[in-house]
Write a protein that binds this DNA or RNA. Structure first.
Lengths: 189, 189
DNA sequence: CGTGCACTTGATTGAAGTCAAGCGCTGTGG
DNA sequence: CCACAGCGCTTGACTTCAATCAAGTGCACG
């Protein structure tokens, strides 16, 4: 049971069977339909999700009302509205299922409890934070150094999943270009 | 001795006097002149710096050869080429003193050693990572949602230090606008 | 079977970059 | 202590990349 999750955890840290049992006791399973929203702006109650099957998207709305996608989380990845999770302030971000999705989740309180009672759990969280930081920084650098064409090429090279599995408008909002521009890029290359 | 650093640490975590002693034994003090470069691209030997007095800047070069500033670290902040520190790959970033600066630094090896022997040290690192992540994400969002004028206004409101203490060309490279555009913005507002 | 949403394609616009020229401070060496 | 070289900053003219606006096509789903 929870094999994907335990594999993931054991890949990152060494953890005793009893500790793994304890950790598991706080995770719950959950199925959501395509397009369902898990976290909306203004909410404080926080969870961390682990994607078993399907895909989550984290995005926020700009003043103009257009969506800006911050992250896609596929199978075997943790995801949450991380800024809100860290700061404990209300989220500015949505978390939404893009496909029918199977999730494991843990509440923020339980997650913090695990940080206290399982020393290695801190290390797991550290890895998640490091990953999130590196991803984000690469993204930031790509906005600064690359134009629309190059950003699209890079995404195609580094994360073809996104381009294949996600609808165009979401890919565009992830690259921070308009849907029209993405359409033109695709037809050219 | 090291009062600034110990104050900073005690603000983030609870740590025994002997542990603090141990931690301190790995930090060294260092003075650098204005414009001196501490880490250059291609280097692997990593340190974490704590700014006692002065200011550090982390930046990288774009293909065109222009500088893109990722972060300014003022008094009582930790700073390093964090992506390289995390991934252990060679840095793409420079770390440079912008003013005559007084630093405490610790090597990556020693820092990791502290993570092992002082349980609370993990928490300190966590706080640093969380801070870096939140800062970076806010920056990312500002590039996506705000135009040049609004980014400048936001920086002026949230971090006037940067605008006051840093030369124009660095402020511009931090906002990811050209020096000319920043000049025009300043003259208007 | 039809309504609406995703996507394409074309025409126009606009924000900010680039190029270019000139001013003024700073600091360095004679 | 002065002079001049060079860098930082400003201002103007022009260019460009990608956004917006607009219209039309086709597919998916109720």
């Amino acid at each position: 049971m929870h094999k994907q999750l335990s594999d993931y955890i054991r890949e990152k840290i060494t953890i005793s069977d009893p500790d793994m049992e304890t950790a598991f006791s706080f995770f719950k399973i959950m199925e959501v339909k395509k397009n369902e929203v898990l976290i909306s702006p203004g909410e404080t109650s926080q969870r961390i999700y682990f994607v078993g099957k399907g895909c989550l998207r984290i995005f926020f709305l700009t003043e103009g009302g257009t969506e800006a996608t911050r992250h896609f989380a596929f199978e075997n990845q943790f995801a949450t509205a991380l800024v809100s999770f860290i700061t404990n302030e209300t989220s500015k971000e949505f978390v939404q299922a893009i496909e029918d999705t199977e999730l494991y989740y843990i509440s923020q309180a339980d997650f913090y409890y695990l940080l206290k009672i399982i020393p290695q759990w801190e290390k797991l969280y550290r890895h998640y934070l490091e990953y999130a930081y590196v991803t984000n920084t690469n993204r930031l650098m790509s906005f600064i150094t690359l134009d629309a064409t190059e950003r699209y090429r890079q995404l195609l090279a580094q994360n073809p999943n996104v381009v294949m599995r996600m609808p165009n408008k979401m890919v565009a909002s992830y690259l921070n270009i308009s849907q029209e521009t993405l359409s033109r890029l695709k037809s050219k290359a």
